[in-house]
Design a binder for these strands. Structure first.
Lengths: 138, 138
DNA sequence: AGGCTAAGTTAGACTGACTAACTATGACGA
DNA sequence: TCGTCATAGTTAGTCAGTCTAACTTAGCCT
């Protein structure tokens, strides 16, 4: 298979995976974007700019996201004592609990889907993950 | 690796792939959703209901999408002579040209990304695609 | 001090998605 | 054949997510 053929197949499957992700997110108490943001806060407070860059969105977009997470008390804004321009964002206890619960549900759903495959197919996916992780890391 | 571990890794990588897809779509003259709809029309006219089901969206969502594709003349609505309730949708010449052009750009982008990997990594992705394709086909 | 740069927020617009309510047509039994 | 119910689609209203442009505030540097 040429790289070009592979790119065509991958292009097709990426759309498929998007639909899968949509089903993973269905019925969750937060959207997949909110989940992703909470995940970025798991290891400690972050600044707005860092979050926006990591998620590949503009700052105003992240402002909106954090506003929506702050309103129900899942995250809290703080300040950086060394630079008054910087706003920090961190998980609240409730936000951490929500993150864990949603992650559990996501993983459970994916586990269920993976169980439907053969052991060989699961192994193939596992073997491809490192390569997929590198993909697009320009 | 247990299936549960695999699910966790996959959950992480899916988010990564979403960001990749976003970059693939950046700068294209149509959105990725519009591209996907045009792709569904490549093999011939379709009815609204069929398109909505294939894309996993509600009918009103597809109405809006088709409206936006019809306005610049990329698709055309028709009727089904055997059932007056049914609206058909088909590609115009311009729509087909647009589809081909966007596909070319997408594949070129992915090819470029894949070239940055080793042959082994590309092979691993290729080997996993059939399994990924099955994933979520409930 | 003055002026440039950086960090965030606000405002306005657009896409994409949903549900609810509506129109128009088809199907089927009394 | 007529009434009722189901099907196909559109319209209207709402919300999340994203963008750009414009603004505010704070730091930095000469």
């Amino acid at each position: 298979m040429t790289t070009d053929d592979l790119a065509q197949s991958l292009s097709r499957e990426l759309r498929h995976l998007v639909l899968l992700l949509r089903r993973v997110a269905a019925g969750q108490p937060i959207t997949s974007q909110q989940y992703a943001v909470l995940g970025s806060l798991e290891s400690g407070p972050r600044r707005m700019t860092g979050l926006a860059e990591e998620h590949g969105v503009q700052l105003p977009t992240m402002t909106v996201q954090i506003n929506r997470l702050e309103e129900p008390g899942l995250v809290a804004r703080g300040t950086d004592p060394s630079d008054a321009r910087v706003r920090t964002v961190e998980l609240t206890e409730e936000g951490r609990a929500r993150l864990v619960a949603v992650r559990r549900a996501r993983v459970a759903y994916l586990t269920e889907q993976l169980e439907a495959l053969t052991a060989e197919e699961r192994a193939a996916i596992g073997a491809a993950l490192p390569a997929l992780a590198k993909l697009g890391d320009v």
